[in-house]
Computed example of a mutant assay.
Amino acid sequence: MSIIQFTRGLLAYLTIPPLTAAVCLSAIADVHWFRKSKAKAQIFPRTWGKLLCRIANIRVRVEGKENLDPAKPYIFIGNHASMADIMSFSGYISHDYRWIAKKELFAIPIFGSGMRAVDFISIDRSRGREAVKSLNDAAKRISGGASVILFPEGTRSADGRLRPFKTGAIMLALKAGVDVVPVGFNGTHQALPKGELLARGGDVVLRIGKPIPTKDFKAKDKQMLAGILHQKVAELLDECHLPLPEPENSPTASTEASAETEG
């Protein structure tokens, strides 16, 4: 990493706390005392993402925006390769959407109030009745017109390659009943790898696929829909983000070979 990029990465890292606080306070003031519109207040998280990308020298390009209808709610489903996913999507996707965050984050002073001000959606990730209720509440918010972005891998990929999708996010899509849009995050892992604090910078491409209707899928089809979405996201990724092929002697490869022989 060059001295210039090291400086920019350090500056971006040090900027996150004060910028986040400033954005949250601005959103709170705007929603309560000025324009009083949560939709218009989305300018604040967008400004947060765009500024951090620019400071860190992360150059973002979006492909496939023509696939979206500005008037429709969607669930965006993407690979999760880096914290730069959040920065780039926040800053450069203009479609009206909300982030989903675990309920504990809403208890953080200023940050939680800021998330409520811009209408972020709370999810209870514990088990039991409250978790089911929060999932149902989130589904109602989405079906009522709130687009969201989800990362079904559950966590950031350590090597930037696409991992299997968990079905929790898929169940939310099925409950909401809105179209699902695959998104490929390319270059974000290289720009800010998992485990590193300072951004390396570079080019990032967000590829937006065509919406996939969910109305014909039922709860029992969640694994099938997860597989379809996984494939659609993979089609939007550069080769360096694709899953590595299964070794020939792996259990999965052996099963597939047996199936081909039997067929």
Rank of each mutant, 00 (worst) to 15 (best):
F185I: 07
G154S: 13
I170W: 02
L206C: 05
L206N: 01
G168A: 15
P243D: 13
T252N: 11
N249C: 06
A169R: 01
D179F: 05
R161I: 09
I228V: 15
D179V: 08
P251N: 14
A169C: 13
A191M: 00
L225G: 00
L198Q: 01
C240S: 14
E196F: 05
A173V: 03
T255A: 15
D159K: 08
P245W: 09
F217M: 08
F217Q: 04
H189Q: 09
H189D: 09
G177Y: 04
A191I: 00
T252M: 13
P211A: 08
E153S: 13
A257I: 08
A158L: 10
G195C: 08
G187L: 01
A257D: 11
K222A: 13
S250F: 14
E246L: 13
F185M: 14
I208F: 07
H189I: 02
D203C: 05
L225K: 03
D179C: 11
L244T: 12
T255P: 07
K210G: 10
S254M: 15
I170V: 14
H241T: 04
I212G: 02
C240Y: 04
L162N: 01
D238T: 09
G160M: 02
R161A: 13
E246S: 15
G184R: 01
L206A: 03
D221M: 08
A226D: 04
P193G: 03
D221K: 05
P213G: 14
G195Q: 03
T155A: 15
K175V: 09
Q190N: 09
M224L: 15
L244N: 15
M224P: 02
T188L: 04
P152Q: 10
A191L: 00
R163I: 11
P245A: 11
F217K: 05
G227Q: 10
E153N: 09
F165N: 00
R200N: 05
G202K: 00
R161H: 14
R207V: 06
A234Q: 11
L237S: 07
G184Q: 02
E196I: 06
A253L: 11
G168Y: 01
E196W: 03
D221I: 06
E153H: 07
D179W: 03
T214I: 07
S157N: 09
K218I: 11
E235M: 10
V181P: 02
T214D: 04
L242I: 02
G202L: 01
H189R: 03
G184E: 01
L236H: 00
V183H: 00
A176W: 06
L237N: 05
K222R: 15
A253P: 09
L242K: 09
L192H: 01
L162A: 03
R200F: 00
A257S: 13
S250E: 13
K166N: 10
L198A: 01
P247I: 08
E246W: 09
A169S: 13
K215P: 03
